[in-house]
């Protein structure tokens, strides 16, 4: 497949870097201010040079000399939307996806915004397009959460829950293991690059909630006979509380009783909830450090657990490229 990659952060760069290994060709790359488009005018299949793009981004902060709009207009089969997640109207990611669908091309999202905030709008665009959308990378990084739910069939999945934010999980794990308070562990996580300078998105539960909202949309739309009957979820529908104020003493009390606290997100076709929850210390959901886990409750197949790396460039790119493979 010929790919246009929009967004040149860790995920976008990894997609550019790894696409060849998966048998795909990157024909355009854009970041917020620049673009490079393969010169295929002479009829040859000439993709962009991944190393050159990555090097230029590192050295000059741009991916090429073109305008970002050029990448959207390039001759690709699938657009990879890997710009930063935005809330509300989910722009500019939403418009990028719309452009692709209106051109009857596929779109693969790593950006959570459009799928969490405007799922209904996306479905409507897909209905009018020969293109499809996929968004495995938006939930749980490398973990195949969305495709597993689709394989089981959303109508046979009663709930999906799990640990979906590595930063919050790292902080809770360290607090419990070292008996330290939140502020202390946060500073350590920031030094290690596990937490951002502004960690709100992760520690307040927003990121986990977006992932659960996406899963709720998959469950709701997937189970409905008529998409018009499906309930659409956005972040506003989620009941969210984070881990910022969890004191070390609470984790100690939990540990005394063989339990620990994890930021657990839960999605059904009716509700979305993210909150710190008590779980058995050695239980399945008590994954350590930046690990994520997705637990799927099914009507006929019991419970499935999939754990793994929930973030990271190559990890998330592997989910993106898996989606691209499903579109072939």
């Amino acid at each position: 497949m010929r790919l246009a990659v929009v967004g040149a952060g860790a995920v976008g760069r990894s997609v550019v870097d790894l696409a060849g290994e998966y048998g795909h060709e990157v024909v355009a790359v854009a970041d917020s201010s620049s673009a490079v488009v393969a010169d295929g005018t002479d009829g040859r299949d000439a993709g962009v040079d991944p190393d050159a793009v990555v090097a230029r981004k590192a050295e000059r902060g741009i991916v090429g000399d073109g305008d970002p709009a050029d990448a959207l207009a390039a001759d690709y089969d699938a657009l990879v939307e890997a710009t930063p997640t935005t809330l509300g109207d989910a722009e500019p990611g939403f418009s990028h996806v719309r452009t692709a669908l209106e051109r009857d091309r596929h779109a693969v999202l790593a950006n959570k915004g459009p799928v969490a905030e405007r799922f209904g709008d996306l479905r409507a665009l897909v209905n009018d397009s020969d293109g499809e959308i996929r968004f495995e990378a938006t939930v749980g990084g490398a973990i195949p959460a969305v495709s597993t739910v689709e394989d089981i069939e959303p109508g046979h999945v009663t709930a999906v829950r799990g640990v979906l934010n590595g930063t919050a999980n790292f902080i809770l794990t360290r607090m419990a293991a070292e008996g330290l308070d939140y502020e202390h562990v946060l500073a350590e996580a920031q030094d290690l690059g596990v937490a951002e300078a502004d960690p709100s998105f992760d520690v307040d539960g927003t990121d986990a909630a977006l992932k659960c909202v996406i899963l709720a949309n998959v469950l709701s739309f997937g189970a409905a006979d008529d998409p018009a009957d499906a309930r659409e979820f956005t972040l506003d529908d989620a009941d969210v509380s984070g881990i910022r104020d969890v004191p070390g003493s609470a984790l100690r009390l939990a540990a005394e009783d063989g339990r620990t606290v994890r930021l657990i997100g839960e999605a059904t076709g009716e509700t979305v909830r993210v909150a710190p929850r008590l779980v058995p210390e050695n239980g399945t959901l008590a994954v350590s450090g930046t690990q994520n886990i997705v637990q799927i409750e099914t009507t006929h197949a019991g419970r499935l657990n999939i754990s793994g790396r929930g973030a990271g460039g190559p990890e998330t790119a592997s989910a993106v490229l898996g989606d691209v493979g499903r579109l072939e």
Partner: peptide, 10 residues
């Protein structure tokens, strides 16, 4: 603040 257990899941 209340930290609830995951009931029925353990």
């Amino acid at each position: 603040r209340l930290v609830e257990p995951l009931t029925g899941v353990e």
